[in-house]
Design a binder for these strands. Structure first.
Length: 355
DNA sequence: AGAATTTGACCTCT
DNA sequence: AGAGGTCAAATTCT
């Protein structure tokens, strides 16, 4: 996407941002007596704004400015949670982040981690966040210093069967017991996200069974157009013909709060590791998510709109994965997709990709 | 009986 | 040394 000038681009973003702010205000006004359908409608409006902004910001970077790349290996995060702070602040912040992203190019490389916040509905019970589409097995629980609630550790059920090393940690928020912070680590290579809707850690199952799952299914009916375009545009050689035509819907997390690690801004390219896109769009189709007040976001948003400083990998040093301008049809996509190893099991089919 | 969870011990990292 | 993460035996669940 080309814009006449950077000014136009920023103006557009400002307008969209204002629109979203106004929709938020409207929601506040309606909140007291709003029906479910009204609320849904508002969420959709806000979601549309978010997406528009995301796309703009993603593409807008082509206007002579270096762009952060999508959280290739996972970890998308939205700074534009509809629930969150004023969008305008985020917008400003993200513009600044662009620069920071450019500066911090060498960081860590290893398994990418990211955090997603899931709010459960009080009437769902307090068992825990709902299923995210993958099958997890709990392998530990630990009291965390300074935290009210223990942290639970889960690994993919198919760790051994399919050599899937994805893990997640679930931490209930101290402040709001209805909010769970879920930290994902690593990509799923088990390809079980869609089909195995059922098996989940017990603490999460009950959520699923009740009403979240309806939302879950609802979300699977996401527009596929963008996905098709996205896929068509991704000229990625996975080197794995087996999974070549794996086209799965994927959606985005409720509110991705941050990537784990130091509070540093990383260009997505630095986040690209062997998990690449596989972790980029993980199990974001959380029924709880859809049932919550957190609006799913697009991958664009996760990147350019997300708090880039929160997109982080962890642990060891990142090797130099040089961000390179490419012919990627995704304007502003700053790393060469061809140059990185794309997880052949990248869950494109996660539900609700473009909610 | 097999699968999943719990929980204390052990390991790793800072 | 202490905190966080993982392992694995014991226990519980299905």
């Amino acid at each position: 996407m080309e814009y006449g000038s950077k000014w136009d681009y920023f103006t557009l973003i400002n307008e969209l941002t204002q629109g979203m702010e106004q929709a938020k205000q409207l929601r506040v006004h309606l909140s007291s007596a709003s029906s479910e359908s009204q609320d849904l409608l508002l969420q959709r409006i806000l979601s549309s704004f978010e997406k528009a902004l995301s796309i703009l910001k993603w593409n807008g970077g082509s206007v002579g400015q270096p762009q952060p790349t999508p959280p290739a290996s996972g970890a998308p995060e939205s700074s534009v949670s509809v629930e969150g702070s004023p969008q305008s602040e985020d917008v400003k912040k993200n513009f600044n982040d662009y620069q920071d992203l450019v500066d911090v190019s060498k960081k860590r490389k290893t398994q990418l981690t990211w955090t997603e916040q899931v709010r459960i509905s009080p009437d769902n019970g307090l068992e825990g966040p709902a299923d995210d589409g993958y099958s997890w097995r709990k392998y530990g629980q630990k009291e965390i210093l300074g935290a009210k609630y223990p942290r639970s550790y889960y690994r993919c059920t198919y760790r051994h069967m399919k050599n899937c090393w994805a893990t997640k940690q679930v931490q209930r928020s101290d402040d709001d017991p209805y909010v769970f912070e879920i930290t994902y680590k690593g990509a799923h290579v088990c390809n079980t996200a869609i089909n195995n809707s059922a098996p989940t850690p017990s603490t999460e199952k009950q959520e699923l069974k009740h009403h979240s799952y309806n939302h879950y299914n609802h979300q699977t009916q996401q527009p596929k157009q963008m996905l098709m375009n996205f896929q068509a545009n991704l000229r990625v050689s996975t080197g794995d013909s087996e999974n070549k035509d794996t086209v799965s819907p994927f959606s985005f997390p409720s509110t991705l709060t941050h990537m784990e690690g130091e509070n540093q801004i990383l260009p997505i390219s630095t986040l690209v590791d062997d998990n690449l896109l596989g972790t980029c769009f993980p199990s974001f189709v959380s029924p709880a998510t859809s049932g919550s007040n957190y609006i799913p976001i697009s991958p664009c948003q996760m990147v350019n709109f997300g708090r880039a400083q929160n997109l982080q990998s962890s642990d060891s040093d990142l090797t130099d994965i040089t961000a390179s301008a490419t012919n990627s049809p995704i304007a502003g996509l700053d790393f060469s997709i061809d140059s990185v190893e794309l997880d052949p099991n990248f869950p494109f089919n996660t539900h609700g990709f473009f909610t």
